[in-house]
Design a protein around this nucleic acid. Structure first.
Lengths: 185, 185
DNA sequence: GACAAAAACGAACGTTCGTACTATATTGTT
DNA sequence: AACAATATAGTACGAACGTTCGTTTTTGTC
C-alpha cells in the first residue's frame, strides 16, 4: 500500500511516534479523515507501518541472503543487504530507532516490535548454524552469541553512519566483520 | 538543577522529543509558563537536558573509570559504569535514543549531540591508547577501530537489555568483551 | 441504469503543543 | 524600608494532535 510506503519513509526520518495522521495525509494528498479510516487508530497505523517494514526487510535483506551460498558468503551478503536497507531509508533503520523509542513504552506497538526483533535474531542464529554445517564455522560455537556480536556490529555501523560523518565507517565495519568471522572460524 | 534531572528521566523514557514543556511542568508542580521562562524555547530545553546528561555521564561513567588503573581494568570499569548508567535511567541511555532520533533531524540539538558523541568516541580511543602504554594492548592497533568495536558492543547490549527479555544478555556482553579484549592483546 | 459497498471528504470535537504577553510573588542588596 | 532582580503564575494565542460524525464521491455488481 502506498500509504504505508510513505509512512515508512516518514517514520525512518521522524520515528514511529513522529508520524502524525495529519502530516501523512498531507504527504499523500488525502484528507485526515480519509486516511484515518484505513486504520482505526494511530496505534494501528504504527503497527501496520512496522509490519510493512518487516515485509520489505524480508524481501530485500533476508531472502537474497538466503539465496546466497551458506557460510561466510551468506553472512557477508546479509550484512551488505542490511547496509543497503539502512541507506535506502532516509533517516535510517526503523527497527533501530523504534527499538530505542519503545524500550520503555508498553503497548501493542512494542509487543509487535519485540516479536520482530526476536525473529531477526533467530534469523541470525540460523545463518550461523548453516555456516557450521558447511564448515565455515567450527563446531561448538554459540550461535546466539554470534547473533549478538553481529547485531551489535550493525548497530555500531548504523550510529556511525547516520550520526557521525566518519568517512572510515565502512572500513571500520568491514574490519570488524572480518575479525568477527575469524573468531568463529 | 532539579528541572533538568526530571527532564533527563522523562527523556530517557519518551525520547528528547517526547519531553513536553507542559508535562515536565506538571511533573515539577510548576506552571507551564514558569518552567518555560527558564529556557526560552523547547530547543534550548532539549540542549540543556543533553548537556546535563553529559555532566552526569562524565561524573558517573568516565571519571571513575579514569580513576581505575589503565589498561584492561580501566576498560572493564568503563563498561560496567556504562551499564550501570543505562540501568539508572528508566528508559535507557539518552544518547543512544537521541542518536537514533536525530540521525536525520538537522538543528542545534543534533549538533550538540554530535559533538558529545565525538567526545565519547575520543574518550574510548584514549582509553585504548593508555592500554597500549601499559602493555595490555599490543602496539600498532587502531584505537579508532577499538572505539568502534567497543561502542558497538555497548549498543548491542543496550538493545538486548532494554527491548528483549533475554536473561543471558549480561553473559553475552561479558563474552563479547573478553573476545574483544583478546583481539587487541 | 439501479443500487449497495467502499472510500474519501470537510467540519468539528476536546486536548495538548510551543510560545508570548502581563502580573504577582519571592529574593537579594543597599 | 526601599528597590531592583529574579522567579513563578496566569491567561491567551494559533496550530496541530487523534478522533468522531454525517455527507459525498467513487467503485463494483447485478
Amino acid at each position: 500500500m502506498a500509504i504505508l510506503e510513505a509512512g515508512l519513509d516518514m517514520a525512518s526520518q521522524l520515528g514511529l511516534e513522529g508520524v502524525s495522521i495529519g502530516s501523512l495525509a498531507k504527504a499523500m494528498n488525502m484528507s485526515k479523515s480519509g486516511l484515518f479510516a484505513h486504520f482505526q487508530s494511530k496505534e494501528n497505523l504504527q503497527i501496520e507501518i512496522l509490519e510493512y517494514a518487516a515485509r520489505v526487510f524480508a524481501k530485500s535483506v533476508i531472502v537474497p541472503a538466503l539465496d546466497t551460498e551458506p557460510g561466510i558468503p551468506r553472512i557477508k551478503a546479509l550484512v551488505n543487504n542490511w547496509i543497503d536497507w539502512t541507506s535506502q531509508l532516509t533517516g535510517g533503520c526503523i527497527f533501530v530507532s523504534a527499538s530505542a523509542d519503545y524500550s520503555d513504552r508498553p503497548g501493542k506497538v512494542r509487543e509487535c516490535l519485540l516479536r520482530q526483533q526476536e525473529d531477526w535474531i533467530d534469523c541470525l542464529c540460523r545463518i550461523a548454524e548453516s555456516a557450521i554445517k558447511v564448515g565455515d564455522f567450527r563446531e561448538g560455537i554459540e550461535c546466539e552469541q554470534f547473533a549478538f556480536d553481529l547485531y551489535s556490529l550493525l548497530l555500531g555501523f548504523h550510529l556511525y553512519d547516520k550520526l557521525l560523518d566518519d568517512s572510515e565507517t565502512k572500513k571500520r565495519q568491514e574490519q570488524a566483520l572480518n575479525q568477527l568471522v575469524a573468531n568463529y572460524q
